[in-house]
């Protein structure tokens, strides 16, 4: 185990709170959170519990980041109608 992993684990331990949002709760809030971020609002103010869960849960974070990428591409019109969305390659 590398030092960084040790430190990451220690940080995860010390940022533990009694009450935390679980994966199901996070899953429900995710679409809303993505739209808040897309609208340029500060998510740490509006949905701090979701943000906190994302810091602790790699699975949810991976899904959240993927959702953000796709919604952003849709909003910016990057994805064309024939389903390529390759940005012109």
């Amino acid at each position: 185990m590398a030092f960084n992993q040790l430190l990451a684990m220690v940080e995860a331990i010390f940022s533990a709170h009694e009450e935390e949002l679980d994966c199901e709760g996070c899953d429900q809030e995710m679409p809303h959170l993505v739209e808040i971020i897309e609208a340029g609002e500060d998510p740490t103010l509006l949905l701090p519990a979701v943000q906190e869960h994302l810091n602790h849960c790699r699975d949810c974070r991976e899904e959240f980041e993927a959702l953000l990428v796709i919604v952003r591409a849709e909003d910016q019109g990057v994805l064309n109608q024939n389903g390529n969305g390759t940005g012109g390659s």
Partner: peptide, 8 residues
């Protein structure tokens, strides 16, 4: 098209 974009 969204999922394809993500995969690619």
């Amino acid at each position: 098209r969204g999922i394809f974009y993500y995969l690619r």
